[in-house]
Every structure is written in C-alpha cells, then in structure tokens.
C-alpha cells in the first residue's frame, strides 16, 4: 500500500439498481457484491462487514423507496459502498438512527425487518458511515470499510 497511494482511482467500480417493494428479489444485489468481493480474495471479516452494510441498505431501499442505486468501489485500501435512493427521505436522521425507531409496516415487520436496527447495524459494521437525506427526494448513504489484514 505505501508509495503508490497518490492516484486514488478505484481498481473496481460498478453500479447495481434495486427496485423498491420487490421483496422476493431483495438481497440479490448484496449477494452479488459479496461474490465480487470474495473473488478479490479480500480478508473474510472485511467482506463480511461490507456485505452486512450493503444488505441492510438494500433492504431499506426495498422497504421504503421506489428505487435506488448501489455503487461498489474498491481500491487498494478500502471499499466504498454508495447507496442513493429515490424515496420519501428521512425528516429527522437523529431520530431514525435511534435504537428501535422505525416507520415500517406490519408486512415488513413480519419479514423480520423494520425493527429499527438497520441503520445502527450499518453504523456498527462500517468503519465510516455518512447519511444525508432530503424529504420528498431520497436518501444517500456512504459506507466505507477499510481493507486491513487481520481485521
């Protein structure tokens, strides 16, 4: 890693789209991203952290937005997962980040999601996590997992 970090061009970048409300297919993009990371032979825990964050974010799109895009970028020392959705947005992010807070429907809860833990899980597993939202437009998440051996 030392020496060549001047140009930070990602060695890999791809975008996948997710359709809101399509529960049967929910999680497919996360599976795919996990597969891509596995092929790169990254450390197991790094893949795991990135996969969990991506999956929670993907479920959020399926549960709450009309659609969204998940962009995976990988360079030498980190994985960046950017999630941009077109949905209602979150009026109060601090509130949404609180344990147990959720606006989910009975249907979502019966599937084992919507317990107000998703964003917290992302915060728990991402090394860096940023969330911005505009009411009526959508929400953007940037999740970073550092690639460090033995993490």
């Amino acid at each position: 890693m030392p020496g060549k970090s001047a140009d930070k061009k990602p060695s890999f970048s791809d975008t996948f789209s997710v359709v809101g409300g399509n529960f049967d297919d929910a999680g497919r993009v996360s599976s795919r991203i996990k597969g891509i990371l596995k092929k790169m032979c990254l450390p197991f825990e790094v893949i795991r952290k990135a996969a969990i964050c991506t999956f929670e974010a993907e479920m959020n799109i399926v549960c709450y937005a009309q659609r969204g895009d998940i962009t995976l970028s990988v360079d030498e020392d980190r994985i960046v997962i950017e999630v941009v959705d077109q949905g209602e947005g979150i009026p109060d992010i601090d509130l949404a980040m609180q344990a147990g807070y959720s606006t989910s429907t009975a249907k979502i809860r019966e599937m084992g999601f919507g317990a107000g833990m998703g964003l917290m899980n992302i915060d728990r597993y991402a090394d860096d996590f940023d969330i911005t939202s505009e009411v009526g437009k959508g929400t953007k998440l940037v999740m970073i997992v550092n690639i460090t051996e033995g993490s």
Partner: peptide, 27 residues
C-alpha cells in the same frame, strides 16, 4: 428479527427461526 441476526450471529452457526421468507436465506 433478521437485523438482530445481522448484528450478532457469527459465521458457521445454525440459525433457529420462525421466519420462512426468502430474506432468511439472503441473510
């Protein structure tokens, strides 16, 4: 609760659950 599983379950464990939807498999 799948988010509970995502938060705490370790690799290689058995998952005991009353849920049967495809998200259980994805998780």
């Amino acid at each position: 609760l799948m988010s509970d599983v995502l938060a705490f379950a370790r690799p290689g464990t058995m998952l005991l659950t009353g849920l049967t939807n495809p998200q259980v498999i994805r998780t």
